[in-house]
Design a protein around this nucleic acid. Structure first.
Lengths: 167, 167
DNA sequence: GGCTGATAATCAGTAGTACTGATTATCAGC
DNA sequence: GCTGATAATCAGTACTACTGATTATCAGCC
């Protein structure tokens, strides 16, 4: 192998490769990480013109969907750590897309509101998301795409609803 | 929403959620990244007793499968950047699992050999991988698992075979 | 009214991932 | 023997994601 000039990292015929944990390409761990890195690149690239990245867009999407939330609630929805979300909200506030306001009933919390400007960004964000999804999932048929999303969702919801210790 | 005491980040009935890019949980970007983070956690935790992480195990798996490779070839097989693989090989060499030797025909290259000790680790690595895969993919049926792996593989192979500029 | 354990946001520090760009050595073609 | 390409390496950068500590506040209980 090492002597070959025209080295090919992977064979052409995907379907001939074994779906077993004995090979790297048969492990969900490998495939998920590589797929995730790639789709994140796509998102970050698409959103850079809006001055944000995929996680910022995710937070705005949650806010748009669920209305006003505390930081904590927001973090839980996006499965983002409580300490990580602070800087993300900072960024979005700096961009004028959200505002930290006083929480009506709990003075420990912040109520995160989307601003008018933030709301105005949503159509663009959704448009970008649709473009990225279309391009990234392009190699799959429509039903395969749907299938993939459903399977992933099942996995994600299962593993993120487990208690912390067993995660 | 912000006033509710018993806040639930996600509804229970997954199947009722829309599979559309307008919601975060309808985007492959979100789902892939969360699933990837989780499965990586599982792998890292399972492999920590062997003194390595998921990427080390991945490299050993490639070597086991393909035999002696140069660092570059190894990187291409594992889709790991040329600059990133250096430290990973360092780690594995320090653990005594691989060795950098002189390349037979190209003195720029290193030939990476698995040591006897490294070969001896493979059954444990495969065992751990199988356990992780079984547990992580547990929420899915056997045919769903197979399906998921095939869809992911199609995506990964497609996107990583593109020329750099359009990736 | 005041104590106590829990919770919300924040920050400092740490670790891991992944890359760009530069450097050195070597190769391969002309 | 010159020239452009390639292999490994390193320094530096940026981003992700966490632990643990801190401060403020809440909620239940005596």
């Amino acid at each position: 192998m090492i002597l070959k000039k025209t080295f090919k990292p992977t064979g052409e015929d995907i379907t001939s490769l074994a779906l077993t944990s004995e090979t790297l390409t048969g492990r969900s761990g490998f495939l998920l990480n590589k797929a995730a890195a790639k789709v994140r690149d796509h998102y970050d690239e698409a959103l850079t013109t809006l001055g944000m990245n995929a996680r910022h867009a995710g937070i705005l999407t949650i806010l748009d969907e669920k209305g006003v939330l505390s930081q904590n609630e927001l973090g839980k929805c996006a499965y983002i750590d409580r300490t990580t979300i602070v800087a993300l909200i900072d960024d979005l506030e700096r961009l004028g897309l959200v505002e930290r306001k006083e929480h009506p009933t709990d003075r420990r919390s912040h109520a995160i509101y989307m601003t008018e400007k933030g709301r105005g960004f949503m159509p663009q964000i959704v448009k970008k998301a649709k473009e990225v999804e279309k391009e990234f999932l392009g190699p799959l048929t429509a039903s395969e795409q749907k299938n993939l999303l459903q399977l992933l969702r099942k996995l994600v919801f299962h593993h993120y609803s487990m208690p912390k210790e067993t995660r």
